[in-house]
Design a protein around this nucleic acid. Sequence first.
DNA 1: GATAGTAACTGATACGTATTAGCAACCCCT
DNA 2: AGGGGTTGCTAATACGTATCAGTTACTATC
Lengths: 361, 361
Amino acid sequence: MAGKGPTSRDVAKRAGVSQATVSFVLNNIADARISEATKEKVWQAVRELDYHPNAAAQSLRRRAAGVIGFVIPDSRNPHFWQIAQGAEKRAAEAGYNVLLTSTDLEFARERLALESLKRQRVDALILQINFPGKLLPEVEGLRARGHPIIRIGRFSPELDGVVPDYGAGCTRLMAHLVSLGHHRIGFVFGTTSRGSVQTEVELGRGRLEAYQRAIAEYSLDGDTELLQHCGPLPEEAYEATRRLLALQPLPTAIISINDFLAIAVCKAVADTGLRIPHDISVAGFDDIPMARYLSPALTTVRAEAERLGGMAVEMVLARLKDASLPPQHVVLPTSLVVRTSTGVASVGTSMEANLAGSRLS
Amino acid sequence: MAGKGPTSRDVAKRAGVSQATVSFVLNNIADARISEATKEKVWQAVRELDYHPNAAAQSLRRRAAGVIGFVIPDSRNPHFWQIAQGAEKRAAEAGYNVLLTSTDLEFARERLALESLKRQRVDALILQINFPGKLLPEVEGLRARGHPIIRIGRFSPELDGVVPDYGAGCTRLMAHLVSLGHHRIGFVFGTTSRGSVQTEVELGRGRLEAYQRAIAEYSLDGDTELLQHCGPLPEEAYEATRRLLALQPLPTAIISINDFLAIAVCKAVADTGLRIPHDISVAGFDDIPMARYLSPALTTVRAEAERLGGMAVEMVLARLKDASLPPQHVVLPTSLVVRTSTGVASVGTSMEANLAGSRLS
DNA sequence: GATAGTAACTGATACGTATTAGCAACCCCT
DNA sequence: AGGGGTTGCTAATACGTATCAGTTACTATC
């Protein structure tokens, strides 16, 4: 059992040098001229003792933990994991660890992540804020104290941020659907998190606006019931879809705020006895890894999740290097991925199907 | 910018007490009798300064980081996130953070996790070892040094471990399929990780043995080609399924080593123009959260992922409390969840369909 | 042959906390 | 009145590292 492990002093003793020298060698400090022979002696001792520097001591001394905090809102949605993967990969290249936390849409856990920052367990935070009303002031206070904070999914004027261009993607998706003859398009808008309904309308706004713009531009059916708000859980999306499928006339296509919920949308459609895409087309956003393996394969707006995560880390690194930078806002492109869940509008349910058929994108 | 934050000494100064007193109050040390009045003064100062103890200093002093490392093999498989969620939840209750890492089946990243342990960035490690040949000796060395290490998914004699009883689950699944008249059952065995084919046959062995036992017991078709080995990626499972679907006669049911790959299995079946469960039944293992939302909803052997993660943390805590405990091996029960992806064996492809029809479980 | 300069190191210190040892003041007994 | 116990605190130290400010032992210079 002994002590937990050898220290740099143990290495020094074994190599017959001072502890300072060991530190110089390990960190490869150019200023301190150390002879090759000595370096070799030190490395030799390191190997013999299987020495590994104590992370806590280094953090304390360096005033930096080498850890980036990454907070995702929902551990069930594969999209966020992919973003986290991208972050972790880029972070590893830069020698950082990632402390990943999911808040699962609980306010208390979101605040907990900020604690980690204040306790300097992490040097920076990448997060998607779900409770901006309650948390934004606190977050901006932290930023003002000099902690790098990158917001994902939506911009704040004061914070660095990276956001996929879902608006443009949604526009392209709507054009695609219109070109297939769809005229009556439902939207399962699963964004309202529990508790804070009002503030949350901000989330997904780009998509919502693009949807409404398309309805106006192509003169599509604009029934307000075609837009179904719901929460972020599959069961809620399922219920929202049921409501859409109770409408008369039936929508010929349904888009979902993300692929994860689109799975539940498809389920609701299938359970109603309708076939995708023959009776109803379904599309989502994100292009989660399994989207292509669903049956039918899901048409979606790809968000390049890994790049998103990598970019967020990139922005952390930039800010760690120069804290005085003005807030950086990065928009990542999206692309429409057409698979088999979207098809020509069913004639049975939509009369004016090919009205806008000439409009291709 | 100033310094990064107030220290306990700043708090002491403001409250007009010594730094030691601050530490006593914050940690609620019963031995040190501190008057209520003083306690209040300290808490007041803490609030006024928004003081948060420095995690690195605490780790250094306490010789414990308050962090448990959790290593998952594949960030794409939702099952692992769910395990991690369970771990994080239980860890939070005990005041621990979880440092989550995915190796994505890369050897180097698996070793990196061990580094974290050696550097005492984490106090303990929970992992699913994918490269036992190369890594097991190292891992056992660490355990011998007194680091709690919990292995998930398979037991080592020397290591604590927690494993879902997939074998029993598989037995029940086979009984279920037999009761539906299935006689020719394929198995997509997606476990062979890249590089180390030989050693990996260990993984999933419980399921494999139960499968073979059932074949013997019920006198099912035992063609060796019904067992298709493949890697852990959806595309590989897809190909393996294609191979199964090229067999003559066709299997009437296919089981997949896990739900995640079962999605690709379903896709391959659908792409071949066969319907589930009408033409072919499909079942998986784990019961990932989206399994019930797939179309058709997936029949599966539930593994209680969250409990698994929680249990692993529990074992970490137990070992941190008493390092001299003998190795603990915990088997978690599994249960068969019948949904709509399994049904009566198609008569067209299987002649002896209802031979074993009386055998229900 | 004294001075300056450099290469190659070492000693000492601080990072912020937890904890041990100790000290002053008070109270209670006899 | 003086010893022993208790209450309520403080001073000092160590955790393991990075780094600043020396300190040798040499070599080069005039």
